[in-house]
Write a protein that binds this DNA or RNA. Sequence first.
DNA 1: AACTTGTTTTTTATGTATAACAGAAACCAA
DNA 2: TTGGTTTCTGTTATACATAAAAAACAAGTT
Lengths: 296, 296
Amino acid sequence: MKSDTVFKLAFNEMLNIVALVGAGAVLPSENDLSAQLGVSRTTVRKVLTQLGDRGYVTGEGRSRIVVGVVPADAHFPYTETVPTSEQVERRFMEWMLRGDTKPGAQINELELAREFGVGTTGIREFLNRFRRFGLIEKRPNAGWLFKGFTEDFAMELFEIREMFELRSALALASLPPSSPVWTKLKVLERQHHDLLSAIDERFHDFSDLDNRFHRLINAAAPNRFIDDFYDIITFIFHYHYQWNKRDERQRNEVAIREHLAYIEALQSHDLALVRAVCSHHLSSAKTTMMQAFSPG
Amino acid sequence: MKSDTVFKLAFNEMLNIVALVGAGAVLPSENDLSAQLGVSRTTVRKVLTQLGDRGYVTGEGRSRIVVGVVPADAHFPYTETVPTSEQVERRFMEWMLRGDTKPGAQINELELAREFGVGTTGIREFLNRFRRFGLIEKRPNAGWLFKGFTEDFAMELFEIREMFELRSALALASLPPSSPVWTKLKVLERQHHDLLSAIDERFHDFSDLDNRFHRLINAAAPNRFIDDFYDIITFIFHYHYQWNKRDERQRNEVAIREHLAYIEALQSHDLALVRAVCSHHLSSAKTTMMQAFSPG
DNA sequence: AACTTGTTTTTTATGTATAACAGAAACCAA
DNA sequence: TTGGTTTCTGTTATACATAAAAAACAAGTT
């Protein structure tokens, strides 16, 4: 059966709205709430009903009034708000990166389904989506093959990344001064400086900044296939960051400085310089990832 | 329920083998048949049982003897041998290319399932796989959006294709004379000449040759992401060829000549020349596809 | 007329069931 | 022992069922 995480997430969010408007106030209309919560009106109604049942709100129709302060434990716990598909993804990645899964291993839908506590449909759909990441392969009527998170994989991934990003960086550097990218780039530059000055405490924040920076570059000349590919990069990096904590602070600091040089190059509009700095940064990122494969 | 197209296809193929060995002969072992038919022994056994039931073969165990000539209508009809997934693909592409589906249209799983006479599961899985082609988009809890086979799509597709192929062509041209590619290329060159000399009758054969040629180039320096992307190209071209028949002979002839120049350039190891010829061919291919979008 | 809420209809997400297929283990004849 | 077959077990492909969510429809209010 379909999980009601949409509802639970909306409910939790609604509690914040209730707290915000305060006791005695009339709630906004269903349509407004639907827009605010980003869910359908059907779900809003379900939330409102629940709110009424629990006694946090009285009245009905167009005069729903907040009763009082809702208890802190009224929220649905986090685990219940994670959609099945997301849960499968996370658990699969853990299962994969834990390392007991060797390249060449067979992947068993039913077994995973049981282990993850979901239906086979969920596993199947995930694997089908995950196929494009190049880590698994489907053999019709004979299951899935885990190809492994190997050096080869990283090499191939980075080769494409370099081609794409070089192309996008050059496109970005060629944009006219009137383009809105330049302000966005300025903001990012600022954030890099901020992060650098507090690197010791905030080095974890780099991952997000990194992603936003490279996405901005890729967006300079949009291409759906490049965007798609960047999803793979994001995904791989997301889990790679969680997995490989070695020298994290140090690595991130280096990367930030490279980004700053990169930004400067872009702002200079000097294409040869952009090319050089971009290549340098990416090959440094590659080295970082490759180190994760070498023991020690 | 799972369709038994594997069995039916194997059965049909088996009839050919039966005809080949002739009446009175003993059939090969189950293992041999399994290898020849490319299916599991379980399926071979099912075929053999059916063959016995129908009286085309007598005896059992290791002395199964062909009785006589099997009637011509013994084969399962073609339509029963197409797996559901393939059927969905073909029908979806027809549905899409027929043109009554406008960009921005909503795709309805249940409706398609009914129209195609399959379960929703089949549609769902197809759409999930088809997502990577960049023609549809999923909006969680709210169906699929058809983005359209538009000029933008073709432009973006060809941009990537050019990047990838240029890279592969240069890699190929740099391979040492000892590499097996060169003989393969020679064979392809021969086939191009053959096709050209009989272009009036055989111009339909170009599509296949084209695919093999470009795949050879891409295989020069393997990269799973490039291979994956070429699947998209193959897929799109496959249906594009069926859909746009205008000037087909003429177009193919031009393309063959371009391929020959391309092959010659590769053999010359002159990287600048390869670059020029490759770019020229791809932009000509792009123009061809773009023409399909302009009315007339 | 523009919004709101109440009600009904569609559609998606996701579990479950089962036939078809694959593969291995147990068995047999030469 | 070898090459084969029979039997068994596990896995995937695919239909189907149903709760959750969305969307469409029908009224009622201001």
